[in-house]
């Protein structure tokens, strides 16, 4: 399956991947409206880490694992793996127990504390390529056919 990979040296720490992700998962799909006017701003499903004032940075996101630890830890069955390999969360079914947060070795599941729902990358089902990848100004994120490990 196609996955998102990170080129650490190319990351400039601009967080535009997070902006792209939040925008894509907003109601309006407009960044200004998503950030300023929508009642509940989505939580980014990719996480940019920065160290030493941004000298090194890295965008991390879900690997859509072959044997997902999050799925195995999920107590409600909200996390399932689709036939196309995408690991998804059914927000209706999620009870916010954070077992997936405990289990994911990639730190790739976020807590939406307001909604009490877990939040993770869905590889942007409405797009040709994920919003984070398209938003990256230095092509530090690549979306390619590849393996998890």
């Amino acid at each position: 399956m196609k996955r998102i990979y990170t080129l650490e040296d190319a990351c400039i720490g601009c967080h535009l991947c997070e902006v792209g992700c939040i925008t894509e998962h907003s109601l309006s799909k407009d960044p200004v409206k998503a950030f300023l006017h929508e009642p509940e701003r989505p939580i980014s499903r990719c996480t940019v880490e920065e160290l030493h004032g941004g000298i090194i940075s890295l965008s991390t996101t879900c690997r859509h694992c072959d044997e997902p630890d999050c799925l195995r830890a999920c107590i409600s069955g909200a996390i399932q793996k689709n036939a196309d390999g995408i690991v998804r969360i059914d927000a209706e079914q999620c009870v916010g127990c954070w077992s997936c947060v405990m289990a994911c070795p990639y730190g790739a599941i976020q807590r939406n504390l307001k909604k009490k729902k877990a939040n993770k990358c869905d590889l942007c089902p409405d797009r040709q390529s994920p919003a984070c990848v398209d938003a990256c100004p230095n092509r530090a994120l690549v979306y390619r056919e590849g393996s998890q490990k």
Binding site: Y5, L7, R144
Partner: peptide, 12 residues
């Protein structure tokens, strides 16, 4: 980090 997130060794 590379073993987890980089494309090296994981894509063609």
């Amino acid at each position: 980090r590379n073993s987890l997130f980089a494309p090296q060794g994981k894509v063609a």
